[in-house]
Design a protein around this nucleic acid. Structure first.
Lengths: 344, 344
DNA sequence: CGATTTTTGTGTAACGTTATACGTAGAACA
DNA sequence: TGTTCTACGTATAACGTTACACAAAAATCG
């Protein structure tokens, strides 16, 4: 006589519930789930029917304990970055065609939070990580990369061996902007940059400054005192930009490190009856949605965020699949010409 | 003779590694980790030392399999919402004082993605969920709430029994705006609202319209044809706002459903030599950071996002702790007066 | 001082999966 | 007709943690 009474399954369906319902073994259900070798069409059909009718979904924790979770983490450390949604579109383009899924975290640019988010995702046994514009240094990144497949966006460290990097060619972006100004006949060209604590060249803003200086030098123009660095404090940013513009020291053509700053500049110029682009020409960065709006009409460097996102994701998936040699890719940015650069 | 050779721990430290290192049982380590009853100070110290020196972090998947993960998921279904970071600040205010941590997901307003994100978080055995402005209906929300403790922000469904809601009093927000206009002597008041597919009153925008009409009626003003609804397509939004403003049918005082729309309106008015607030007064919603910028200077309704976030989190934690009766809270919004309402 | 209670530590069965090893039935082959 | 494959299913040991049940030691008590 059978002592072990099969209990009526209650609460959430597990693989055991499915096996019971389909009248097969747990191993069989698992095989179907994993598309493993050795399942007849009849068995597969039975199992899938049960899964459907029970509304079964595999428990990710249990999966993670044994191996893959089919989840990748995306960590946005700079929420302000306006092309984040473009990147995410690219990420989802690639992931939706795979059986992976993205979960995201926001570091809010606060370092301990950033690190603990990364650790949480590792502790959740996620299969890989995409970091966007991390604040932490390369050594720390390398430490985490040893624990989980990782791709980093917005961090120019081509010597990294344990993780991949995908970047917009920020030097080239600055070069394109300067050349566009030159083409329009401007010679008095400046850059509105950002104060960064990070002294290394891995920083995106640093790369743009390098490109800016290179382009000026190539055109035979002086490179001294051409860069004005804004502080990061958002509240006073508008004032700082205004001070810069009205200081009398402002150049005739200004390459801005972000659309936000550029828009401040445009607004401010308009307010003070300075004509754009006749009196002053402006190029922003990111080609964010506001830049395109009729009242703004800001020329801007487009980073192809969507392509960066999809490429980063493909790179991550290949690393998850076993690749170990590091890959470092630069994507060419493009200039979107608008009324702040060329009178239409 | 001891056959079972204790293998040298390699790779990531587990609870077993710690036990071995500290010379105690696995159960003892677990007790320390859980602050469980029955650990001497001596044992606790030994274990903590080992944890520290090995850099041990508990595996969340394994924890989740047995019970709690100490993670809560926050799902942002509307990335455009400008007060998200305020809400997150509030969430982190509360969580940082607990041993819980937040992981986030972005639904990008795409329904299947939203649902699958929620499911992923459930499948990860997260302990609770905070949803912000979900697109899905109440029945579906209730279904998920049966599987995991849940608090919803931006969804006015006070009859929900399986989950809690925390909302800004959106009706009241509209009332405050209308009254402010009345106080300034305006009688020709309109609302720039949003086309929503959701016919139910749970919707935030619907609630604002209700409040708007109520306030007009209370002041003895006609309520017919006072609301103009914008479509959601971002690209054409600026044009639509401009059409509205120049149609000749635009009222003298306009209450906007979002700061973005309000800013379009301000820019557009300025462009067409319409004075703000002399010719037209404008109040926005969300008190986002751009509204405060000098060139914009937009009066706006503040939702106290930070308080909403912290309250939602406290509510969630209490539900995780065992509360089962639903709690529905409204937070009073406030008006931030700026130059678009009152000439300074 | 023996009996009883309290404190402190340990052994171990789950939790829900995966993946390896193995069994079995038929088909193919000699 | 026996032997060898092949295809298909199943049993089960992990994975890292928790929490229950219990044992041993220490403290308290009459």
């Amino acid at each position: 006589m059978d002592i072990k009474v099969k209990t009526i399954p209650t609460g959430r369906a597990t693989i055991k519930t499915v096996a019971l319902d389909a009248g097969v073994s747990v191993a069989a259900v698992s095989k179907v789930l994993r598309n493993a070798y050795g399942v007849s069409e009849a068995l597969r059909a039975k199992v899938l029917t049960s899964i459907e009718s029970l509304g079964y979904r595999p428990n990710v924790s249990a999966r993670g304990l044994r191996g893959q979770t089919f989840k990748v983490g995306v960590i946005l450390l700079e929420i302000a970055n306006p092309f984040l949604s473009q990147i995410m579109d690219g990420v989802n383009d690639v992931l939706s065609a795979s059986n992976y899924q993205a979960l995201m975290g926001m570091g809010e640019s606060r370092m301990p939070l950033e690190a603990s988010l990364i650790e949480s995702m590792i502790d959740f046994n996620m299969d890989g990580l995409i970091l966007i514009a991390p604040q932490m240094g390369g050594e720390l990144l390398a430490k985490y990369a040893r624990q989980i497949p990782m791709v980093v966006i917005g961090h120019h460290e081509t010597t990294a061996t344990t993780f991949d990097t995908i970047n917009s060619d920020d030097q080239q972006g600055a070069v394109i902007a300067v050349n566009a100004f030159l083409e329009q006949g401007f010679k008095d060209i400046g850059m509105l940059s950002l104060v960064v604590d990070d002294l290394h060249n891995v920083n995106v803003v640093q790369q743009r400054e390098i490109g800016f200086r290179t382009a000026l030098a190539k055109a035979g123009l002086p490179t001294e005192d051409r860069i004005w660095r804004n502080r990061k404090n958002v509240l006073r940013q508008a004032d700082e930009v205004e001070d810069y513009l009205l200081s009398g020291r402002a150049p005739r053509a200004i390459f801005c490190w972000s659309d936000i700053d550029a828009i401040h500049l445009v607004n401010c110029a308009r307010k003070n009856n300075i004509r754009v682009p006749e009196d002053i020409a402006i190029i922003g960065y990111d080609n964010s949605s506001v830049a395109a709006l009729t009242p703004i009409n800001l020329a801007s460097i487009d980073q192809s965020g969507r392509r960066i996102g999809s490429l980063a994701t493909e790179t991550l998936l290949s690393r998850i699949a076993g690749r170990t040699n590091a890959s470092h890719v630069l994507i060419e940015p493009t200039l979107v010409k608008r009324a702040s650069l060329i009178k239409n």
